[in-house]
């Protein structure tokens, strides 16, 4: 169903509309068969962030259901299982930096939320 647009070798996948997102919280989408957590912070300059949904520590697909916040200057999501914090920008885990969630570029075009799957 989703439309794959190829532009300058970049492959952006349509995921949903802005209205499907939940302000200051996350939802999960299937992007090219992968579970991707998408977070929406309407007040921020970059308002949509995307990270892989699987918690590498708790071993379950639940990152999208974590609480958003900030630690120092970093925007983070806290895993709902054991509460480690992952940076929204890079997916790096603050408590256990050996764990990093894959992060994805996002953009919003005419209310359509897109995730970059490969370039």
């Amino acid at each position: 169903m989703s439309v794959v647009k190829i532009l300058k070798n970049e492959c952006w996948e349509d995921v949903c509309t802005l209205a499907d997102l939940v302000p200051n919280s996350g939802i999960c989408a299937l992007v090219s068969g992968q579970q991707v957590a998408i977070f929406y912070l309407p007040q921020e300059e970059t308002s949509v962030y995307a990270l892989h949904n699987r918690d590498p520590i708790g071993q379950a697909d639940v990152i999208s259901r974590g609480i958003l916040g900030s630690i120092g200057d970093e925007l983070v999501v806290a895993s709902p299982l054991y509460k480690q914090h992952f940076k929204l920008s890079s997916g790096v885990c603050l408590e256990q930096p050996e764990h990093t969630l894959q992060s994805y570029k996002t953009r919003v075009i005419d209310s359509c939320v897109q995730v970059l799957v490969s370039s």
Partner: peptide
């Protein structure tokens, strides 16, 4: 800041 998983709940 933005709050966190301590103060928000």
């Amino acid at each position: 800041g933005h709050g966190c998983d301590i103060c928000k709940p």
